[in-house]
Design a protein around this nucleic acid. Structure first.
Length: 105
DNA sequence: AACCTGACTTCGG
DNA sequence: TCCGAAGCCAGGT
């Protein structure tokens, strides 16, 4: 496990309840703005193991990246539970819910 | 060591 | 605006 991967976990854990972050954003916080795919891989492989709030990470378009037959519904349900609202097309208003590491915490 | 894969992103047609 | 292709990174085979 690389240092970068460790930082990804630390970053994800910092995302506040009721807010979301994009894969690229998490990657940037962890020190490599180009490693979005690696962030996805980390969540996929060790979210359960480390109790990460994996559902708070979505793609840059404000959509859930999971396929409908995979965890899509579960992730959406978890976000709704935290008070996050979805538009009709299933997207999230990033202007409103995106985590700002410098202001929130 | 080479090759494949994915819960991503960006750019060009 | 909507795909498809090409980048990118690390772990698994």
């Amino acid at each position: 496990m690389t240092a970068f991967t460790e930082r990804v976990k630390d970053t994800v854990i910092r995302i506040p309840k009721g807010r979301v972050a994009t894969y690229a954003q998490v990657a940037a916080c962890a020190g490599d703005h180009r490693a979005a795919r690696q962030v996805a891989w980390v969540l996929h492989s060790s979210s359960r193991k480390y109790g990460l709030p994996w559902h708070r990470v979505i793609n840059s378009r404000g959509h859930i990246s999971l396929k409908p037959n995979q965890g899509y519904a579960r992730q959406k349900a978890l976000l709704l539970t935290e008070g996050i609202m979805f538009r009709e097309d299933g997207s999230i208003n990033l202007e409103r819910y995106l985590w700002n590491p410098h202001i929130d915490m």
